[in-house]
Amino acid sequence: MPLREHVRELRTRALLATAGLLVGAVVGWIAYPWLFEVLQEPVVALAEQRDDLISLNFGGVATPLDLQIKVALFAGAILSSPWWIYQLWAFVTPGLTRRERWTTLGFLGAGVPLFLAGGAVAWWLLPKAVGLLSGLTPADTANLIDAQSYLEFIMRMVLAFGLAFLLPVVMVGLNLAGLVRGSTWAHGWRWAVLLCFVFAAVATPTADAISMFSLALPMCLLYGLAVGLCLLHDRRADRRDPFAGTPDDGAGGALA
Results as ranks from 00 to 15, higher is better:
residue 1 M to F: 10
residue 2 P to A: 04
residue 2 P to N: 07
residue 3 L to I: 13
residue 3 L to C: 06
residue 5 E to S: 11
residue 7 V to W: 07
residue 11 R to A: 15
residue 11 R to P: 11
residue 13 R to W: 02
residue 13 R to S: 12
residue 16 L to C: 11
residue 19 A to G: 09
residue 20 G to M: 02
residue 25 A to M: 07
residue 25 A to F: 01
residue 25 A to P: 03
residue 26 V to F: 11
residue 27 V to R: 04
residue 29 W to Q: 13
residue 29 W to P: 03
residue 36 F to H: 12
residue 36 F to P: 03
residue 36 F to W: 01
residue 42 P to A: 08
residue 43 V to R: 13
residue 45 A to C: 12
residue 46 L to P: 07
residue 48 E to F: 10
residue 49 Q to K: 13
residue 51 D to S: 14
residue 52 D to H: 08
residue 53 L to F: 13
residue 54 I to F: 05
residue 55 S to M: 14
residue 60 G to T: 11
residue 61 V to W: 09
residue 64 P to T: 08
residue 65 L to A: 14
residue 66 D to M: 13
residue 68 Q to K: 12
residue 68 Q to H: 05
residue 69 I to S: 00
residue 73 L to N: 10
residue 75 A to C: 04
residue 77 A to S: 14
residue 78 I to D: 06
residue 79 L to H: 09
residue 81 S to K: 08
residue 82 P to N: 02
residue 82 P to S: 14
residue 87 Q to A: 14
residue 90 A to V: 12
residue 91 F to G: 03
residue 94 P to F: 15
residue 94 P to Q: 13
residue 96 L to N: 00
residue 97 T to P: 04
residue 98 R to K: 10
residue 98 R to C: 04
residue 99 R to K: 15
residue 102 W to Q: 12
residue 104 T to R: 07
residue 105 L to C: 08
residue 106 G to W: 10
residue 106 G to T: 11
residue 107 F to T: 03
residue 108 L to P: 00
residue 109 G to C: 01
residue 110 A to L: 12
residue 114 L to P: 05
residue 116 L to D: 03
residue 120 A to L: 00
residue 121 V to R: 00
residue 124 W to Q: 02
residue 129 A to Q: 09
residue 132 L to W: 09
residue 137 T to A: 09
residue 138 P to R: 07
residue 140 D to L: 14
residue 140 D to W: 13
residue 142 A to T: 15
residue 142 A to Y: 13
residue 142 A to R: 05
residue 143 N to V: 06
residue 147 A to L: 02
residue 151 L to K: 01
residue 151 L to R: 02
residue 151 L to T: 00
residue 153 F to A: 11
residue 153 F to W: 06
residue 153 F to I: 05
residue 154 I to G: 03
residue 154 I to A: 00
residue 154 I to H: 03
residue 155 M to D: 14
residue 156 R to W: 02
residue 157 M to R: 01
residue 160 A to F: 08
residue 161 F to M: 08
residue 162 G to F: 00
residue 163 L to A: 06
residue 164 A to Q: 01
residue 164 A to K: 05
residue 166 L to D: 05
residue 167 L to V: 03
residue 173 G to W: 00
residue 173 G to M: 05
residue 174 L to Y: 01
residue 175 N to F: 02
residue 175 N to M: 09
residue 179 L to H: 04
residue 180 V to Q: 01
residue 182 G to D: 01
residue 182 G to I: 02
residue 184 T to P: 01
residue 185 W to A: 01
residue 187 H to C: 00
residue 189 W to E: 03
residue 190 R to M: 07
residue 192 A to G: 04
residue 194 L to A: 15
residue 195 L to G: 08
residue 196 C to F: 07
residue 197 F to G: 03
residue 200 A to S: 06
residue 201 A to T: 14
residue 205 P to V: 06
residue 205 P to M: 11
residue 206 T to W: 04
residue 208 D to L: 05
residue 209 A to V: 11
residue 210 I to P: 05
residue 213 F to I: 14
residue 214 S to I: 12
residue 218 P to G: 10
residue 220 C to F: 09
residue 223 Y to T: 00
residue 224 G to A: 06
residue 225 L to A: 09
residue 227 V to A: 02
residue 230 C to K: 03
residue 237 A to V: 05
residue 239 R to E: 09
residue 239 R to I: 10
residue 241 D to F: 13
residue 247 P to R: 08
residue 249 D to R: 12
residue 253 G to D: 15
residue 254 A to Y: 00
residue 255 L to G: 15
